[in-house]
């Protein structure tokens, strides 16, 4: 019978879908739980608050956390104005559809550039050509450039969603373009922008490749005092080095602890982004 073949095929399809979905999600969940439990075993207040000793084998990760926070804040301060300006130019000051489309494609391609290329370019330009040596500023700048496409696209999407009546009302009130930008366009698209920035930042915080040649060293740095020759320690690079000494059990345990702290940081930043993301979704529906 034809229909019974149809039903059998359908049952097989449903079975396969459930099977692959179940395997995927449960394996990933298992891995995640493993990561958390291993991390929590080696986490303590002392681990968080004391500096590293004996090349990562004992001691904590205080300066690594500090360094990662310094990088994150630098990135935030650089990416905020740059992507705001870029998005305003892209969606307000330029109206030619062709130029807009080209810029958009350009941004998508930039978004795909492998992060290690940022590291190499930064190494050549900042570390060697400008002679800055390793510096926290270079790291923050490169990370900002890495997430710039994401944040710019987020803001310009937010601007495109603003209902035209708001802008027309502004024009009818006789507002100048600058006034419209600051009192209508930016406030109305702020949630989209902020959620884009925070999601980008969550990605930047965990990156190793752009900063390993340009900003961070494994040991011997504390709080940077200048820009030139002022490297920092950072969590991703710390883990990267400890993994390569993974035959040492204590180094390994510290790597788990550091990974957990890094993941927590990423989750924290994405968590802060969540309400803004929801609001941006609501704005999109109106």
């Amino acid at each position: 019978m034809v229909s019974s073949i149809r039903i059998w095929k359908n049952q097989l399809f449903i079975l396969l879908v459930y099977l692959s979905g179940f395997i995927t999600v449960s394996l990933l969940f298992l891995g995640f739980i493993l990561l958390l439990s291993k991390g929590f075993q080696s986490l303590s207040l002392e681990f968080l608050l004391s500096p590293m000793r004996e090349g990562g084998i004992s001691g904590g990760i205080f300066y690594q956390i500090l360094g990662t926070l310094i990088l994150a804040i630098t990135t935030l301060f650089i990416v905020f104005p740059l992507s705001m300006g870029f998005a305003l130019v892209k969606s307000i000051y330029i109206q030619k559809a062709f130029v807009k489309k080209t810029m958009e494609l350009f941004l998508y391609i930039l978004n795909g550039i492998p992060s290690v290329l940022f590291g190499i370019f930064g190494f050549f330009f900042f570390v060697k050509y400008l002679g800055w040596g390793k510096s926290w500023f270079t790291g923050g700048f490169l990370l900002a450039m890495m997430i710039l496409p994401t944040t710019t696209l987020a803001l310009s999407e937010g601007i495109n969603r603003i209902s035209s009546e708001y802008i027309e009302n502004g024009l009818a009130l006789g507002m100048r373009k600058t006034q419209i930008i600051f009192s209508i366009i930016l406030p109305q698209s702020f949630s989209s922008f902020l959620s884009g920035v925070l999601l980008g930042l969550a990605r930047a915080v965990g990156e190793t490749a752009p900063i390993m040649f340009t900003a961070t060293i494994f040991s011997g740095a504390t709080i940077p005092t200048g820009v030139k020759e002022s490297p920092i320690l950072s969590l991703p690079y710390h883990i990267f080095n400890l993994v390569q000494e993974s035959y040492h059990p204590q180094a390994l345990s510290n790597a788990w602890g550091s990974s957990l702290v890094l993941i927590m940081l990423v989750i924290l930043i994405s968590g802060i982004a969540l309400p803004f993301r929801l609001r941006a979704h609501e704005e999109a529906k109106v």
């Binding site: 104005p81 740059l82 705001m84 300006g85 870029f86 305003l88 130019v89 892209k90 969606s91 307000i92 000051y93 330029i94 109206q95 035209s164 802008i167 027309e168 024009l171 100048r176 373009k177 600058t178 419209i180 930008i181 600051f182």
Partner: peptide
């Protein structure tokens, strides 16, 4: 069209526009 109006320079120079351009 309402956004197209925005793209026309209403003032020959604005600080916001200049900074946006520089950042871009």
């Amino acid at each position: 069209s309402s956004k197209a109006i925005l793209s026309k320079p209403t003032f020959p120079f604005s600080v916001t526009g200049a900074f946006s351009l520089i950042f871009t």
